[in-house]
């Protein structure tokens, strides 16, 4: 399990629709905005990289000091962004794939408007469980 990890789902309109701090590190007061800043800045790189490959998993695309940003882009151009400090490529890949499945289930919900914030607590607990398992 990574000591610091922040997972964000960004909709195709660059709006964060799901955020969670999944790291084990004790929370620093400014961690939330720093993580947001890093991930937000990494979107610039995703934007360029996403069209150069057909793979959904873009591996780690950006880094800030010792924090690495890994990104997974779905077909609908929803981006799963993980900020982490551990190097566990396989684990991250499986994490993304499983979260993708969960996300598809969310999308299948007729009451969920695509692009709106994911408020399902079920989704949240599942994602956290996956993070514990893989990261």
């Amino acid at each position: 399990m990574a000591t610091t990890a922040c997972f964000i789902i960004v909709s195709r309109n660059d709006i964060p629709i799901y955020e969670s701090e999944v790291g084990t590190a004790t929370k620093r007061e400014d961690a939330a905005q720093l993580h947001q800043f890093i991930l937000h800045a990494a979107l610039d790189i995703v934007q360029d990289l996403a069209w150069t490959t057909s793979a959904m998993y873009l591996k780690s695309i950006d880094r800030f000091n010792d924090l690495v940003v890994s990104v997974y882009v779905t077909a609908g151009h929803t981006r799963f962004m993980l900020l982490h400090d551990s190097r566990n490529d396989d684990g991250i890949k499986s994490f993304f794939q499983e979260v993708h499945e969960l996300y598809i289930k969310i999308l299948l919900n007729p009451l969920y408007l695509p692009g709106s914030r994911i408020t399902s607590s079920h989704f949240d607990t599942k994602v956290r469980a996956l993070a514990r398992k893989y990261l």
Partner: peptide, 17 residues
């Protein structure tokens, strides 16, 4: 540097911050 074309605005903002 990030603001030069093609600009990466988010990086631009982040570094300014």
């Amino acid at each position: 540097c990030y603001s030069s074309k093609p600009s990466m605005l988010r990086k631009f903002g982040f570094h300014l911050v």
